[in-house]
Design a protein around this nucleic acid. Structure first.
Lengths: 123, 123
DNA sequence: TCTTTGACTTACCAAAAGTAAGTAAATAAC
DNA sequence: GTTATTTACTTACTTTTGGTAAGTCAAAGA
């Protein structure tokens, strides 16, 4: 395994890590991407049901950001009441395998991490 | 590539994704882990210099959380003024390759994403 | 005696996120 | 013909989270 050095942490403008984490490194973005990866197409309220603890407001801004980054498609049907469908773009799909690695890591390690938290403190 | 379905998004307690994202899915944790992956050992103020836009307060709480999850080691030397060194644990190191995949993805895609943001709006 | 040093805390303030109610427009129910 | 319903959001207001700047502790050096 080669060593990859990421030099410019301090440079907020140009560090790709910072730039990307500023978008995904929030409470909801990755979850939405993974959910759309599973379900392929979901409407606003369906997303809201799956991630019940997100507020409508935050779901709306999360979807807007992901759309602005062209990670998800937003398809609006001219009906009343309105219908809007969300799905991953190719770019969004290209992120999926990396996120699924994180899911596997989480599944494998969550037990021990929970253990550590209990032993070492600080909820 | 096999399809991995993550069923329990709605179940905040038991979904490993939610549990893990609740910890890393913040502005700073992943950055700290990657930085320690690069530099191996860093003191508090060194971390602060690399990630200059983090506040001391947030750096402190981020480090505490990561330590509670046993992702980083905190070694305190009984000197005055105090010296404290941080490094990745084995568990922390096991996360590194996954995060480095994200870095590579970020490097590959940041240009086009920035482009999308300009075209489609919403800074 | 006063300053410096490093790893933090603390008090106070600003920004982000949650809550709950509201909006729009057409169809369905009464 | 008035009212309720449906969906994808906004908006106003409150709470929580994070940022800022100053403070703490203890010893060594000027």
């Amino acid at each position: 395994m080669e060593k990859i050095v990421v030099k410019n942490y301090a440079d907020e403008e140009n560090c790709p890590v910072r730039n990307v984490l500023d978008r995904f490194g929030d409470k909801w973005s990755m979850l939405v991407i993974m959910l759309l990866g599973d379900m392929e197409v979901l409407r606003f309220n369906e997303l809201h049901k799956y991630i019940d603890s997100i507020s409508q407001k935050m779901l709306a801004v999360t979807l807007k950001k992901l759309e602005a980054d062209n990670l998800i498609n937003r398809t609006m049907f001219p009906e009343i009441p309105p219908r809007v469908e969300y799905s991953l773009t190719e770019r969004g799909k290209s992120l999926l395998p990396l996120l699924l690695n994180l899911v596997q890591w989480a599944n494998k390690n969550m037990g021990e991490i929970t253990q550590s938290r209990l032993e070492r403190g600080t909820k």
